[in-house]
């Protein structure tokens, strides 16, 4: 062992005695550089199309309408004082909360129902139940629009068959809000269903068997086995859907365009109307930015949930 250096020096004089610069180290460094280069397009997308626009949005929101003057938070205070905008806040929250609850409940029921089916039939039913979620909402909402048409509504025709009077689906504030929530529920419930179904399938059967042997009833199994096992995925799905629903644009834009009398506007559609259609870019930017705090909270909660899932290896 004493001749260790002798071997190194004797056999390979070329490298002997050299300080350990380390080709491997150099390679590791080169690898890091390469890795960075490979991630560069991603960085460019995130920096150029998300981070920069975000700060630009903040800057825009502090300018006057013609974008010539810095006005501080005037746009924000102006918006808060405006009744239409207060309605927008109320409606966005109402819309998101109601639609998400409806979607979650329907999704939950359907997932359970599907899970109870024999494996063979499941695929077929699942396939049909997912259709609303596959059609682009901008396209499927057109069909809803047509179903709600004031003079040709096929729903009203059916109501008439049962002797009920026509419903002003999109003409009355209350009904219009209902319609918008209904369409969003229609579009989003399949997503909840499929997420819950995946979660249900991942609960080991032994747990249910053990619970059954312990004497649990169906409700108790749901309460003590299914829900705890699905809690994480339920919260992730709900939070995720809250973001998407809260920030929705397509459905309201096509169905009501915010009407009647702005009673169905959401942040997204209102920002579009103010910023793009009326040409008040700064005010539109401010409307959008109002969504940010809530979205940020949801996003952090989701991230926590996802990290927890990763840790638990579920």
């Amino acid at each position: 062992m004493a001749d260790g250096s002798a071997i190194a020096a004797g056999r390979v004089p070329a490298t002997a005695g050299q300080p350990r610069t380390g080709t491997l180290k150099r390679m590791a460094r080169r690898r890091s550089t390469l890795a960075f280069l490979m991630a560069l397009p991603l960085l460019a997308v995130i920096a150029g199309l998300v981070i920069y626009p975000f700060f630009y949005a903040i800057e825009l929101s502090m300018l006057n309408k013609r974008m010539t003057r810095f006005v501080g938070i005037d746009n924000f205070t102006f918006l808060l004082g405006r009744e239409t905008f207060q309605l927008v806040i109320f409606q966005s929250v109402l819309f998101a909360v109601t639609a998400v609850i409806a979607k979650a409940l329907i999704g939950f029921v359907l997932a359970h129902v599907l899970h109870a089916l024999p494996a063979k039939g499941q695929r077929k039913w699942r396939g049909m139940l997912l259709v609303p979620w596959v059609i682009p909402p901008a396209v499927s909402t057109l069909a809803w629009w047509w179903l709600f048409d004031p003079s040709y509504s096929a729903f009203n025709w059916m109501l008439a068959v049962f002797g009920a009077g026509p419903v002003p689906w999109l003409g009355d504030a209350g009904w219009a809000r209902f319609a918008v929530i209904l369409v969003n529920t229609w579009y989003g419930a399949p997503f909840f269903m499929i997420m819950y179904l995946a979660a249900l399938k991942s609960v080991p059967d032994q747990l249910y068997e053990a619970a059954a042997i312990d004497g649990a009833t169906g409700i108790q199994k749901l309460r003590y086995v299914t829900l705890p096992m699905m809690r994480n995925i339920i919260s992730i799905t709900v939070l995720f859907s809250l973001i998407v629903t809260f920030a929705n644009f397509d459905i309201v834009r096509i169905l009501t365009n915010g009407g009647p009398q702005d009673r169905t506007h959401l942040f997204g559609t209102y920002a579009f109307q103010v910023g793009i259609q009326s040409g008040d870019i700064p005010l539109g930017a401010a409307v959008s930015l109002f969504m940010f705090p809530l979205l940020a909270v949801f996003a952090v909660l989701i991230l926590r949930g996802v990290n927890q899932r990763t840790k638990e290896g579920l």
Binding site: L60, N248, A271, S288, F292
Partner: peptide, 14 residues
């Protein structure tokens, strides 16, 4: 998690 409605106005300007 950033929805498109959050940033479409600055993107419009860009």
């Amino acid at each position: 998690l950033v929805p498109e409605t959050l940033l479409f106005i600055p993107l419009f300007q860009i």
